[in-house]
Structure formats: structure tokens, C-alpha cells
Design a protein around this nucleic acid. Structure first.
Lengths: 191, 191
DNA sequence: TTCTTTTCCGTACGACTGTGCGACTAAAGG
DNA sequence: CCTTTAGTCGCACAGTCGTACGGAAAAGAA
């Protein structure tokens, strides 16, 4: 067995290349050849671990949900209650380059999934991660006295978070603290 | 001068075809050949009035802003204050097939414009229409006593409207009055 | 009728796409 | 040394893309 390939590292490199291509050229440009070029591979080499374009798409969107839930799980253990809610929700917004990349891929696939039903289960799973973070943020912010009808609050917060993410991507000429302020007011309104 | 072409009717037909293609197959499939087929034209005939793919894209996104502002302007004249604000904001949500089509095209171009800077001025103009409707809704809901700092409220409402639109597209399995309820609560919170 | 102008469309070209296939290379076991 | 095997990659095929070009068709003007 020669030249053992670190499959996980290869996956990470290719997925990162796919994200870069999506962010720079749009999801239309997510082609085997472009991803391979971005990753520094020959297209035929890329196909050794990603046998088809569909696999590239699938792993790229799955990686978004893994990154999101991983980052929320890695929040400082000391955070509780409203502080945790605030920090968790901010992990869902494109407030730095890394989060911007993730949200760009997330929303691009969300629109793509509208027309490509093979993408829907994967994207819905990622969407469910976001929704779950929102739900836990509501619980945390409300304190122990939770329960009741979380439906309207959750729908509203979830829509607001995705709307904020979209606006931060598409209208980056905002002053810095804007989105945080909106989140803070939303948390206030929960009480 | 033979066979006089109704340029406006042709434009409408082609733009509608482009919208249908985007809604059914995604913005990746917005090709000259597919739009022509959807419009019942030969690709070469389409190019007589739409000389390039870029023109198709441009007219398709411009038409969104025209439809949106036209529909808001056509609201019953009797509506004022909060009732007008509610009705105007609901025109920005995909609550029927026509509005769904418009918002699907609007958001698809919004993501596409992230990677195609030639699309940005046109999409920003459409975004400005949405934002203007939000601003006027805030004024109307607040009553005559307007002025002051509309900034945070506007940013928040605008993000909420686009987030609601996105969620209605992508998670259509909601009970009916959900989005209206969210809008009503948002209008309440303005007072 | 013939002309003239507008509209339509068939055809072709080069570029790019996803994918299949087979040859090649490099390293570990014998 | 040779063999085996995981990994790399060149090449080719068929399909689609945007676009250019030139001729056919249609209808009012003469």
C-alpha cells in the first residue's frame, strides 16, 4: 500500500476549494474542473475521492452544518442563559470571513435546492441545525421558565436570523454593531 | 414595414419565460436556449430582441422591481396608516404563485449578484424598492409622529421581510397565517 | 406584380461541461 | 531485485453553452 492518502485532509481541502469557488464565482461555477484547479489537483485526481459533481455538492453542504454545529458546541462553557443565546446566534451570522463563507454557501445551496430536489434533504438538515440553535437560544434566553408555545417565537427568530445573514452578505456597507443590536433587541422582546 | 412586432408584448413574454425557467430549474438553467424554448421561440429569434444572455438577465431582474413597486402602488386608495403598512409588506412576501415567482427570482439574483458584479447595480435597485416599501410602512404604522431615527427599525424590518420571504420559499410546509402573524407583531412592536 | 424592410431561424464555431477509461507513477511487501 | 496496489492523470466522447452570420419568409409600398 503506497502513498497513503489522508482521506480526511483531502476531503477538507476539496470542500474548502468548493466553498472558495462558490464565494468567488457563484454556485453556477461549482464545476469539477474549477474545484480541482482551486484545490491544486487534476480533475481526474479529484474524481478519485469525489467520483461525481453531485458528491462535491453534497459534501460541501454537509460540511456547512458540521461547521455550524461544531462552532456552537465549542462556545465557552461558562456561557449560560442570555449570554449563551447571544453568542450562539452570532455564530449564525456572517460577521467574519469564515462565517461569511459558510453563510454564502448555505444560502446559495438553499436557493439551489429550490430547483434541485436531490439537494433538499441535505440542505434541510443544515437548515434544521440553524433552527435548532435558534430554538435553544430562545430557551436559554427565557430562562428555566420555558415550555409553552415556542412556535411563533421560533419562526420569527429563525426568519430574522436568516434575513440578517442575507443582508450582511449582500449589503456589507453597514456599520459594525448593527446586526448585534438587532439580535439584542430580539432577545429583549422575548421576555 | 411588415410583420410589426409588439416589442412590449414580446418583452413580457420572454421575461415571463425567464422567470419560469428560474423558478423551475434554478438560475443555473437561465440559458438562451431554455428561455427561448419556454417562450416558444427559436433561440435565434429570441436574440433579435434580447441580443445576449446578459440582456435577458438584466430585463428579468428589472421586471421584478417594476412588478413590486407597481403592485404596492396599486393598493386600494382607502388604505392608510397601519392597514396600508400591513398590506404593503404582505406584497413583499411570496403568499401566492405570482409573488412566489417574483421573490424566487429576486433572491436568486441576489445570490447571483454576490459573484457577478455586473448584476449588482440592477439588483441593488430592486433591493432599494423593497427597502423603500419597508421605510414607508414604518412611517405609515407610526402615524404622523414619524421622523426620528428610522435606521434600526428599518434595518430590522427589512431583514425580517427578506428572511420571511426566504423561509416561505424554502419551507412551504407552514400553516397559512404564520407570516402575517409575524408581520402584525412587528408592526405592534413599532409603537 | 416587384421591391423593400422587418422579423425569423438554421447552421456553425469554439469553449466548456460531466464522465469513462486506461496508462502511468510511486511506495511498501516479498 | 520484482510484484502489487493506492493514487494520479491524460485523453476522448457526447452534450450544452453563447454567439455570429446569412439566408428565408412575410407583409406593406410601389
Amino acid at each position: 500500500m503506497p502513498r497513503i492518502l489522508d482521506a480526511a485532509a483531502r476531503d477538507r481541502a476539496v470542500i474548502d476549494a468548493a466553498w472558495q469557488v462558490i464565494a468567488r464565482e457563484g454556485i453556477t461555477a461549482l464545476t469539477v474542473r474549477r474545484v480541482a484547479a482551486q484545490a491544486g489537483l487534476a480533475p481526474s485526481s479529484l474524481r478519485y475521492t469525489f467520483p461525481s459533481q453531485a458528491v462535491v455538492r453534497e459534501k460541501a453542504i454537509i460540511a456547512v452544518s458540521e461547521h455550524l454545529s461544531g462552532r456552537v458546541a465549542a462556545l465557552p462553557a461558562g456561557l449560560t442563559g442570555r449570554a449563551w443565546a447571544r453568542a450562539a446566534l452570532l455564530e449564525l451570522l456572517p460577521l467574519d470571513q469564515q462565517r461569511r463563507l459558510e453563510m454564502e454557501v448555505f444560502l446559495a445551496f438553499g436557493m439551489a435546492a429550490l430547483a434541485d430536489e436531490t439537494l433538499q434533504p441535505l440542505w434541510n438538515a443544515t437548515d434544521a441545525v440553524v433552527r435548532d440553535v435558534c430554538a435553544r437560544a430562545i430557551e436559554a434566553a427565557k430562562g428555566e421558565a420555558a415550555g409553552g408555545e415556542a412556535g411563533p417565537h421560533l419562526d420569527r427568530l429563525h426568519a430574522l436570523v436568516d434575513g440578517l445573514a442575507f443582508h450582511l452578505l449582500v449589503r456589507p456597507d453597514q456599520q459594525d454593531g448593527w446586526a448585534q443590536t438587532v439580535i439584542d433587541r430580539e432577545l429583549d422582546s422575548l421576555l
